[in-house]
């Protein structure tokens, strides 16, 4: 109807801007911490701009725990990338099957079993997963980590909702024409699925980039550690290397931030949709 009065608008913007600062300030402080020398930080923790750019922290984090930071970075990329691809393919096929053929008891059982799994407190599930990994010989392997990270609730719900919305008529028409289920999938469902696949892939990437506990538990040595796990170890070390910790935190955060900024609309809408289930 009418635009609100000026004082109300000022108030609304004051709130929005303060809250935005609350959300963003830790990132800026982290970056400052990475580029400012320790003495400078101790003298003035609140500086909003670096006095001088000090890159020494990045030389210090070049090697962590006896191996190059590139090992962690590469592991992060591999684990996240592979688990994302696997998650999209496996969950899409699974959700599609459960939407198209929901009634037979094995399918009902599968759906209930999956819902039960995602209800189990995650960090407590990870512990028995350690034993499972041991039993099937995947403990300490990249394969084990990737397979475990391929299963997730939001991926399933997004695909399930999407496949439910595909009109039955289109599929029935194709079947009337004698198309096999594989052709239906290939020529009817797949072409319209590009947006949901992209959404799920990006969200899975962001989720799995953040994962650290399963990686830590399934690993047997730092050889399979990812960036967050390296950060955990560095933060737990005796003898504070504040600047190095901030540099590593920044390196862990920046890739996720870039992906999110490039696809923010898709991510936010996808998460909202996957959650409202």
């Amino acid at each position: 109807m009418n635009t609100p009065a000026i004082p109300l608008r000022i108030l609304a913007y004051a709130v929005a801007i303060s809250v935005t600062i609350f959300f963003l300030y830790p990132y800026w402080w982290m970056l400052l911490g990475a580029f400012r020398s320790t003495e400078a930080i101790l003298t003035n923790p609140l500086a909003l701009w670096p006095e001088t750019l000090d890159f020494s922290a990045f030389e210090e984090v070049a090697r962590i725990g006896g191996q190059s930071i590139w090992v962690y970075a590469l592991n992060s990329v591999l684990v996240t990338g592979l688990s994302t691809v696997l998650s999209v393919v496996i969950t899409a096929l699974g959700a599609y099957a459960l939407v198209r053929l929901p009634d037979p008891w094995p399918m009902k059982l599968l759906r209930s079993g999956f819902l039960l799994t995602i209800m189990y407190p995650y960090m407590l599930l990870v512990i028995p997963v350690y034993i499972v990994m041991f039993k099937i010989g995947l403990l300490g392997t990249m394969t084990g980590i990737v397979l475990f990270l391929a299963l997730g609730p939001i991926q399933f719900f997004l695909f399930e909702q999407f496949f439910r919305r595909i009109p039955r008529d289109i599929i029935d028409a194709a079947r009337m024409d004698g198309a096999s289920e594989i052709s239906v999938l290939r020529y009817v469902v797949l072409p319209v699925s590009a947006p949901v696949v992209a959404t799920v892939a990006i969200i899975t990437f962001l989720l799995n980039w953040s994962q650290w506990f399963p990686v830590l538990v399934i690993s047997r040595s730092p050889k399979t550690y990812t960036l967050p796990v390296a950060l955990l170890n560095m933060n737990g070390e005796l003898g504070v290397n504040f600047q190095g910790i901030m540099a590593l935190a920044a390196l862990t955060t920046i890739p996720a931030t870039i992906v999110f900024l490039l696809a923010h609309r898709r991510v936010i809408e996808g998460v909202a949709e996957g959650a409202v289930k």
């Binding site: 959300f23 962001l206 980039w209 953040s210 950060l231 955060t253 996720a256």
Partner: peptide, 11 residues
Amino acid sequence: MFLPVVTPDLA
């Protein structure tokens, strides 16, 4: 508002 949600929680 959503950036912290997708930031690795550990970091």
